[in-house]
Structure formats: structure tokens, C-alpha cells
Write a protein that binds this DNA or RNA. Structure first.
Lengths: 127, 127
DNA sequence: TTGCAGTCGGTACCTGGGTACAGGCTTACC
DNA sequence: GGTAAGCCTGTACCCAGGTACCGACTGCAA
């Protein structure tokens, strides 16, 4: 009966204990062993798995995508990362345009949105 | 009793009619005049106001921020745009690092997340 | 053996930005 | 004046990704 309790795992991975049960329901975490009394006993790898999930989220994957990623093997994984890479590149391009527009708004001394929007030099409406 | 009906305004601004009432509740749109029967009558400016709201959203402002923006005058507006600009620039920087990590993952032939995450060359866990 | 922290399952709630539906009224056109 | 389209209010629901609360039970140490 060895293993980590949910609170320990959650603290080690920097996650709310409720989130463990949530991930289990979503199929991101395998069902752990239990004590005789029904308390969960996690293997130590769960902590790195959680960190992997969080890292993938930071890479812009949704939980559904992470689930697919965790079940993927071989070229599937490769293709998904490549697909996500082009998504991220697209997003960077969009944000770059947005930053341009904002720089324009700052430079144009766009002081009052209402009047500025009426001004043809205002970059807001077309962005 | 002149003015535009909600359906006309919504269609002209490319917005769902329900959204007009939602924005009114949120304080983004002023309360319009009404017909004797209680139907809303919008001034024509409402259409450009809606477009301005949508443009601001595309610039990354939340509806709460747009509300504040619409009520702001002078330097407040300027400062907010500048603040949002640095937020956007930060986000671009984050996404750029993420793209780097993904390129790494693709290049490293990171075929199976589980084994790859255990591999010290895998860029996923630290991102 | 007692006491208390930790955990259990189930359910409800949160944020943001809307969208959908129900049942009734108004407006416009023929 | 009939009829259909449009609009009214109010309420409920959607998405993702959790978080909070409840009353009951377990585990562990003193």
C-alpha cells in the first residue's frame, strides 16, 4: 500500500487537489490504486505527468488535445506538434498586427475613442 | 419617431440582435429611445459604436475594458492603450518561446510524449 | 481511543461573451 | 382588419477549465 496521497501529489505539482479528480474524470489521469478505505494512492510518475499536462497547456493545447497527445504514439504526435506550431505562428502574426494598431493609436494621440473613431486617421475601426 | 430597429442595427454591424440587449445590460450601449409600443429605436451612430467595440475586442480588450475605454477621456485613454500594448508585446514574447519549444519538439522527433518527457533533451517540461 | 487533518463522492458555482427559447405584444403591409 | 414578421422581457443554456461546498468517512499519531 505505498503511493502518494492526493494532497501530496497536488502540492508537488502545484495544482488544486480537486483538479486531480477533474483530470481523472476527463481521462487525463489514469485511475489510481486505492487504500482499503477508498483513498487514492498515486504513483510518483503522476507528478511529472501533471507537469507535462501543464506544460502542454502552456504550449496552447486544450485539455482535449492533451488527452489525444497522451494517447498518441509515433508520427501522430509529431504531426500534432507541427500543426500546433503553425497555429502558434499564426497567432503571433495576428498579435503583431494588433500591436501595430495599438502603437498607431498611441502615436495618434487617440485621446477619446468616440471622436478618434470618427477621425479617418484613427487605426481602431479597421483593425 | 425616427431611428433604426434593433434588427437593422444588428445586421448592419454584423452582430446578433441579442447581443445589442446584452451590451445594453453591460452598459456598453446607451439606452435607446423607444416607440410607443416599446420597440427600441437606435440612432445611426450606434452602428459605428458597435464596430468600434468589435475592433477594440480584436485588439485584445475585454468588454469591461472597452466599457472603461468608452467612458475615458484624454490621458486615460492614452495610458490604457499603452498598457494594453505592453500586454500584447508580452504575449507575443511568450508565444515566441512556445513556438521555439514546439520547433524543438518537432526537430527532436519527440514521438511519444510520455517517453519524451522523461528524456532530458525533451523541451516540453521546462517550457 | 480519541481527535483532527485529510479525503471521499456528488453537486453547484465561477468567469467571459454571448446564444437560445418561450410566450406575448407591435408594426407594417395588403 | 387580418396576418406575418419582427420585437419585447425573462430566463436558461453554451464553452473551457476548473473551484467551492457539503456531509460522511478514513488514516494516523498521541
Amino acid at each position: 500500500m505505498t503511493g502518494l496521497r492526493s494532497g501530496q501529489v497536488a502540492a508537488a505539482a502545484g495544482v488544486n487537489p480537486q483538479t486531480l479528480r477533474y483530470y481523472e474524470r476527463r481521462g487525463l489521469l489514469p485511475q489510481p490504486d486505492r487504500t482499503l478505505g477508498g483513498h487514492r494512492l498515486y504513483p510518483a510518475e503522476t507528478i511529472s505527468l501533471l507537469r507535462l499536462i501543464k506544460a502542454s497547456q502552456r504550449l496552447g493545447f486544450t485539455l482535449d488535445e492533451v488527452t489525444a497527445l497522451l494517447n498518441a504514439r509515433g508520427a501522430g504526435m509529431h504531426a500534432r506538434a507541427a500543426a500546433k506550431l503553425s497555429e502558434v505562428e499564426l497567432k503571433i502574426a495576428e498579435l503583431t498586427m494588433i500591436a501595430e494598431a495599438l502603437r498607431g493609436a498611441v502615436a495618434a494621440s487617440c485621446d477619446d475613442v468616440n471622436t478618434c473613431a470618427a477621425d479617418p486617421r484613427c487605426p481602431l475601426p479597421d483593425s
